[in-house]
Amino acid sequence: MFQKLSIAAAVAVTALASPAIAQDKEAPAPIAIPAPPAGKGQIVFYRPGGMGFAVGCSVNEKGQKVSSLGAGKYFIMVTEPGRHEFSVKSEAKDTLALEVEADETQYASCKIKMGFMVGRPDIRPATEAEFRKSKLKMVDADDMGPGEGALRPEQVAAALSGAPAAATPAAAPAPVAPASPQQ
């Protein structure tokens, strides 16, 4: 009798727990990208997972590191409108120039392609749809460059919540937090 009751209780607990498990398995919430500050533009750099996870893809502009970009990571760079040229380097160097527009968000991806000794990072323009396909996490603040450029996680969180950002190495994002469609 006791055994039967125990089994029934276990089944009931399992039944109660199953919705929670199902919730855990649901797709994660889409990544929220804050709008850039008024008059500025931004670029979302990301690196889908896959081959070459051990090879770095450090994004630089004018010789200054903007941020490292590990496999499955992304970061947001707020910058002035105009032409910007970015480079990534390992065994070989690759560059990408983008036209940053005020109040708009653009996307760029880094993939590791085959090289002679190690993989070669390949940086290229991308779209928001491509960005949304990948399962990504934001780059840790420790891996971001020392100068202006990549938004720290707390700055992104502040921008999304509408709270004023703390002291910023880059310009503070606008306190509006819609999903940012490419305009």
Partner: peptide
């Protein structure tokens, strides 16, 4: 003028090469 979004990429075959590796 501004905001002419006509950036495009050709077909990437890096995944094919990686599979070959």
């Amino acid at each position: 003028l501004r905001s002419m979004h006509l950036s495009s990429n050709g077909k990437s075959r890096t995944d094919t090469v990686n599979a070959l590796n």
